[in-house]
Design a protein around this nucleic acid. Structure first.
Lengths: 208, 208
DNA sequence: GAGCTTTCGCTACGAGTCGTAGCGTAATGG
DNA sequence: CCATTACGCTACGACTCGTAGCGAAAGCTC
């Protein structure tokens, strides 16, 4: 998680249960208090560990919350639903369900905000949260290209650019809908979003 | 800005210069210190006012930063460039330029994060920042419908829904690209984004 | 089991920030 | 001139931070 027990083969091992308790306590504190009122002392009390133990494992509030929030994204999967549109709708609804949880809402944006001035934190977020979402995008695109729903992209650099573009469009829209506009990314919205993403704004909506 | 001098017609008036100095000092502090290390005492010192003066005008750090960041979006405009694609590219590049400034990067996401637990703050952000961007979207769409580039939408409710959708897709993609992916929303990216938004993913790229 | 190593819980601490209260002074309108 | 409000300044208790020091606990190796 935060240190891979690099060279310590002797001595008392760190309690794995304490790690789980601390991360769970962090999420509980995020729900009840939000990011700004969350204190490490309070998290330690909730987790039943000493405050010093917390500081021995995490450098600060930022890193702790990143790890606590990252676990929420473990459940993200990419089931094959038969078509690109159905795949997108499925994974976007999963993503929206996670963002609907208060511990994700208040924690995620806060650490992203801090990461604008902390490159190490940005890298930590990328490795533990963003990359996992990115893989789903690439997997869905590859699957759609096999089906013939998307044109193949022989150029590797161009392929990477469009992959980044799709990712920013999908994740950005859902995050903005949920956290900025403050409205639910429900099935109706996801369906309209998917239609625009695949066929564009200039194509008339066949359903109306 | 924060209080419309409702019924006080007598007594010493509040210094408008102090307001400007405080907001400018807040942006300067955001650049140098970022959100988490920004203190109201420091802002007061930079602005040349007493800390108590600051507390008399703003309820706290959140509201102050919202007002300070909101002024950055004053320059957003929607010039008529002749086509919907050109209009989108122009306004998105303006938006990206604002998000590229460090005072916007570190401040905007932080207040949005806090707004997930504070309805009053969410409303303040909506009124002073988000609404202005939303108007540009509606204006651009209306212009495109006059040109015949977009189909007219007679149903008001449906029209509002698609307006929200377009807004979340545009603003969300730019914000995610800039602040989460950490890559620049330059002309090349904006061009590709506009193409996908208008014609969709399934339409092959004519430029390749 | 003996001994070594590392972690853990606990307490205490200086430093820093918060938000407010109190006071005297400055600026404006009637 | 006088009521009213804003301002600058100081001081304050409360809180959080991150660290240091200590003794006890829990493993591993021999």
């Amino acid at each position: 998680m935060q240190s891979r027990t690099p060279a310590s083969r002797t001595g008392r091992p760190r309690s794995a249960a304490a790690d789980a308790a601390i991360l769970a306590a962090t999420r509980a504190a995020l729900v009840e208090l939000g990011w700004s009122k969350l204190t490490l002392g309070d998290v330690a009390t909730r987790a039943g560990v000493a405050k010093t133990t917390l500081y021995r494992r995490w450098a600060g509030k930022h890193e702790l919350v990143v790890d606590a929030v990252a676990e929420l994204f473990d459940e993200l999967e990419m089931p094959d639903r038969g078509s690109l549109a159905a795949d997108i709708e499925g994974v976007v609804l999963q993503f929206a369900a996670i963002l609907d949880r208060p511990e994700a809402r208040s924690g995620l944006m806060a650490v992203v905000a801090e990461s604008t001035r902390d490159d190490a934190l940005r890298e930590r977020i990328r490795a533990s949260i963003v990359d996992r979402q990115m893989r789903l995008v690439l997997e869905g695109r590859a699957r759609a290209q096999c089906r013939g729903e998307l044109p193949p992209e022989p150029d590797a650099a161009e392929s990477a650019r469009t992959g980044d573009l799709i990712f920013d469009m999908v994740a950005g829209a859902v995050v903005h809908r949920t956290l900025v506009s403050g409205k639910p990314a429900d099935e109706e919205w996801v369906h309209s979003f998917t239609r625009v993403l695949l066929t564009g704004l200039t194509t008339p909506d066949p359903s109306t």
